[in-house]
Simulated scan of single mutants.
Amino acid sequence: MRRLDQLLSSLGYCSRKEVVGLVKAGRVKLNGVPLTKHDVRVDPHTITLDGEALEAPDGLLAMLHKPVGYVCTHSDGEGPTIYELLPAQWLDRNPAVTSIGRLDKDTSGLLLITDIGTLVQRYTSPKADVEKTYFAELDRNLEPPLVEAFAKGDLMLRGEERPCLPAKLEIVSARTARLTITEGRYHQVRRMFASQGWHVEKLHRETFGSHTLGDLAEGEWQMLELPANVKL
């Protein structure tokens, strides 16, 4: 049970003060009956605003198809941000929405968006072991020994003290490959190829855990079901 004004404010609909006006206008209902108080405690799943159920009252999880050129930050000055692609109301939610992990400006593909801190921890913890698959285009022809080099688990990145975990490399064509990793180090895929003498010219994340982009268009998003046993 949550206080109505706090609930609507935390979901980004309006400020707590503005809830008073919504209630007076009869726009907020509990099981179809207009509410008369803004500070009453309610079950979020019984509330409608303008006849619509509240959006993701238990926490938000969505998938975004990030285009090249967008950055995963709330800060200004680094170019367009992924948050410009999301509904404005999401940006007013409290806790704030954030991406689970990041993709650099020159990488496209699947990003997960959430306002649930425990989900961020679940997916990005070093112990999470979440598989992420990337499609990469390289600057020159690939060579079969790369498959073993990535799979052995002893590949070192410059400036790091421990090797990368074993990764699965599939050579798709002469200069394209699909790479599956379970870590999320800084620019990891690009640095892994660079350590062996290849430069990644294009990079796209196809999957994140059990989620895949499918036919989701670039720049578009879709809501996802929350995993079981999520602690808010």
Rank of each mutant, 00 (worst) to 15 (best):
I116T: 07
L61I: 11
H65W: 01
L86E: 11
L146T: 08
Y123H: 04
I82W: 10
S75V: 03
F135N: 06
R102L: 10
R158D: 14
T118S: 12
T176Y: 12
D154E: 11
G79K: 05
L61V: 04
Y123S: 05
T73M: 09
N94W: 04
D129S: 14
P87N: 04
R122A: 10
E148K: 15
R162V: 13
L138K: 00
L64N: 04
L60M: 03
L103H: 04
G159K: 14
R102T: 05
R140T: 07
T176M: 06
T124N: 05
R102Y: 11
G77R: 13
Y70C: 03
M63D: 03
L165H: 13
R93G: 05
D139I: 02
R122N: 10
H74L: 12
K132N: 06
Y134T: 11
L60S: 00
L112A: 07
E131T: 03
C72E: 13
K168F: 04
S125V: 05
L86H: 08
C72H: 13
R140Y: 02
S75A: 11
L157D: 09
D58R: 15
A128L: 10
G159Q: 08
T176A: 11
A167P: 06
T73G: 13
T124A: 07
I113K: 15
N141I: 07
A136R: 01
E84Q: 15
T118E: 15
G159I: 15
E170G: 08
G59C: 07
P166A: 04
P126H: 14
T114F: 02
I100Y: 08
Y70N: 01
E160W: 03
E137L: 15
A177S: 12
Y123F: 12
P166W: 03
P95M: 10
L64G: 07
L146F: 13
